[in-house]
Design a protein around this nucleic acid. Sequence first.
DNA 1: ACCCAGGGTCATA
DNA 2: TATGACCATGGG
Length: 213
Amino acid sequence: MDLQALYQTLLSHYGEQSWWPADGPFEVTVGAILTQNTAWSNVEKALDSLRAADALNPEALSTMDTDRLAALIRSSGYYNQKARRLSGFARWYREQGGHEVLRQRPTETLRAQLLALHGIGPETADDMLLYAFDHPVFVIDSYTRRLLQRLRLIAGDEPYDRLQAGFHQALAPEVATYRQYHALIVEHAKTHCRKRPSCAQCPLSDSCAEASA
DNA sequence: ACCCAGGGTCATA
DNA sequence: TATGACCATGGG
């Protein structure tokens, strides 16, 4: 079982994923911040209330009072932190000139700029790069780390960039493939590897440490 | 009542 | 550099 075989197995078992439902790239970036350590169902409620308040755009987010913004995104948790993060990101996004300008930048340049912003770490930056700015960077999240660990492909304590490099080395740098793969990992985690893994129907149980334990 | 979710930052040693 | 505390809601 290598990273390519894993992709094929997940794809044939779960099928094509239509992921990150959002109305345009800016909504994707907002969702990326709101979903930090948070269930997506809670993020959707926050996005809905932002939309209802006509606040799901860079202008509103960067100028609105952060207490009011925090109230709007309450359901996503960590709302005080996230209100500041959204506000700062939205201000930067406007100053830089918006989506088209940012999108044209070299991947490493844009990634470094995102990481320099307060509250944007490697996963949030890569979510944005892959799903909003169409750059071929692989997203490593806790599901990815846990899955590779159970498949004994990694020890588990490798740093983010090292795991990402493993995917970049194993796969051709295609945005569509990276999007699919990451979405499949999340779908698999939600289906089989919650608190109590349902290993009987899991397509990976042969290679999984959890199933043989 | 407990556990954790599509993380990140900051203080301490 | 490496752990640990902290942020906080909602669903299982």
